[in-house]
Design a protein around this nucleic acid. Structure first.
Lengths: 369, 369
DNA sequence: CGCGTTTACTGAACCGGTTTAGGACCCGAG
DNA sequence: CTCGGGTCCTAAACCGGTTCAGTAAACGCG
């Protein structure tokens, strides 16, 4: 009974069985109007009896397009998915790719190399998330000359881009906190894939980190904190992966190091919610004892207790715009100029921020722990 | 300057430029040991000068494999990503596919048809999430005979499966709540892609819903509630999409309909957290006035306030196991028997559940609103 | 020097479709 | 009867690689 691996029927098999040419079979599926209706029907019947399905790879090769677009991330997918941000971004991308009948391929480093992954990827174009100039393989990626839209990275001449005004958003967050009277603020930065490339671990590392999202947001924070005369010392910036756990651990670590902030500026909502949890462990009340500001404005921020003050960025729309730009570029004959979109951010004040506690300003407030 | 669309160099171009055959070029990349070292080097130099990259689609066609696996979801991706559950599952899948050098393609219905999407998908195998017998295209999908591992669906003879003991988990949740003394419990079910196919809207719709996850969990709940003499009336089961917003809205809706539960059994953590938020709006204190139990045990459950009592299921591991099973099956010569894994669930009691309030049992407790 | 073996490479078939140019046939008009 | 035109279908080229069988030259060796 068990056939020794029945070979998948191919177009030639159908053609033979139906007594027509391969071309006729192809037409029956793709240009039925070129055949006599009854012929087309007969071919389709035969095809279905044989269980024939056109081989998608062969079709791609011949058609010279894959009807698939890629989402490129410099981190392994297991890391990418850990940040809820990605789901919303992907939701945006997929909503427009789906509408246009494109599939979605996730592209992450293959055995350490993004270039290798990109070379293997069967896509018509790519939405690259957080791929900045500092990426070690950036030149190779550029040379691959796959149609590409950059997200959260400054665009290049040849590639369109979708950005968000990270710096202004971060500044607004910091100004809010300064305006409430806080003097001791902890910054929780997201541990980028592109870590600070220079060995110099200076806290004002804006320059070294390069134009990553982290760098831009940090610049935004500092541009509000420094003019207000707040010293942002080495201990007041901690770095963590953009996850709940990361935020919790980061805050706890800072606390153990003796830092007693009255406000936290977190570079993502996930980090902020982690910090919220950490503060609960330490029996700090938010916002009475501690103010927390996030970044992203993911739905989860509305559902935390208290609801999170955060910087809104249109995450879903970023995905949509990027996908649209990419598809437009694919449709247009080559030579259409790159477009660069800068989307706005805005501070959303909810209930996780308030005035600092009365006794603040000294290092030893003696709360909790 | 602007060349009229410089054609991508192909292997023949490299061969000609290097004065060798196509085969030699191919060897230079894939079997360098078959060439004299200097020849291989020379070819590679020429190739790189021309900017040659082997065409991935052609390679797939020839190699008869794509080195890509698909994750198939019956819902549009925009819906799929809205449930945080998916990110963790995908994390699991991707961790093993990445390790083996496989890419990840997301497969969702194409213009309404999953079959169409599957036929277009260039994958060596598929992990199908929540694809149960009731799916209208199930027969066509089966016939496609793509290597497939079913997740959260009973396996078929020909396909391996990874499941979780939903029924036992749900029963444990309900028993916990009953054990605490609750009599008025609200069930928030997830609105499946496969909604109840029969028009009969009976509340005990376990049968009609078929073997979906929702059906299994509902059976589990009822198997603990009914023996305890709790009546599970029409008003006590509400349905919502598995998102934060869905849970919030569902609870509010039930409340407006006059239902006054002292406990909520939610079929996902996202729903539970939404319910938590709704209870805050209504000024119900959890767990004093209301107990809430989730399902999944996603990290977010640890970070809610109060931390969520929930049914743990190994979401990440489900993804890993499915991917592993699939890859094993691909490696093995055909005929290796399907394997079926049933993973355990367990109740994790945190702080969102407690005894019902003293005055409970009557419908009009007069709390909040 | 002659013969068998290696080495280094090539030509052609193959993967499974799509598409273009054109052939066979039939019809109606001149 | 012939010619133009339309209909329906086919042969062959093509997409861009990999691989198998085979060959020519170099090599080892008695």
């Amino acid at each position: 009974m068990q056939q020794t691996r029945v070979r998948r029927p191919r177009i030639a098999d159908v053609a033979e069985a139906a007594g027509v040419s391969k071309a006729a079979v192809s037409f029956a599926f793709n240009n039925p109007e070129r055949l006599k209706p009854e012929t087309a029907d007969r071919i389709r019947v035969v095809a279905s009896e044989l269980g024939y399905r056109p081989h998608p790879v062969a079709r791609m090769l011949s058609a010279q397009r894959t009807m698939t677009i890629g989402v490129l991330t410099p981190q392994p997918l297991s890391q990418v998915f850990a940040n809820p941000f990605f789901a919303y971004f992907a939701e945006g991308v997929s909503s427009v790719t789906e509408e246009h009948g494109f599939g979605l391929l996730l592209i992450s480093p293959l055995r350490g190399s993004l270039t290798r992954a990109l070379d293997r990827a069967t896509v018509d174009g790519v939405v690259a998330l957080g791929l900045d100039e500092n990426h070690p393989e950036i030149e190779a990626i550029r040379r691959a000359s796959v149609p590409m839209v950059l997200v959260d990275a400054p665009g290049w001449v040849e590639h369109s881009s979708v950005q968000v005004d990270d710096e202004a958003g971060a500044r607004a967050a910091a100004e809010h906190v300064v305006g409430l009277g806080h003097r001791d603020v902890l910054i929780i930065a997201v541990e980028g894939p592109v870590a600070n490339p220079s060995p110099d671990e200076g806290p004002n590392g804006g320059q070294e980190i390069g134009e990553s999202v982290t760098a831009r947001r940090l610049r935004g924070y500092l541009s509000a904190l420094e003019p207000a005369g707040l010293e942002v010392g080495p201990g007041s910036i901690v770095v963590a992966p953009a996850t709940f756990e990361g935020g919790e651990a980061a805050f706890l670590r800072a606390w153990e190091d003796g830092f007693r902030p009255t406000a936290v500026l977190a570079m993502s909502d996930a980090l902020a919610i982690g910090a919220l949890q950490a503060s609960r462990h330490l029996r700090l009340r938010v916002p009475r004892d501690l103010s927390v500001v996030g970044f992203d404005d993911l739905p989860i921020g509305r559902f935390s207790d208290p609801p999170l003050t955060t910087v809104h960025q249109p995450v879903r729309r970023k995905g949509e715009e990027a996908a649209r730009l990419l598809l437009d570029g694919l449709g247009a004959r080559a030579g259409s100029p790159a477009q660069h979109r800068m989307l706005k951010t805005r501070l959303v004040v909810r209930r996780s921020t308030g005035a600092p506690p009365a006794g603040a300003g000294r290092e030893e407030v003696g709360l909790g722990e």
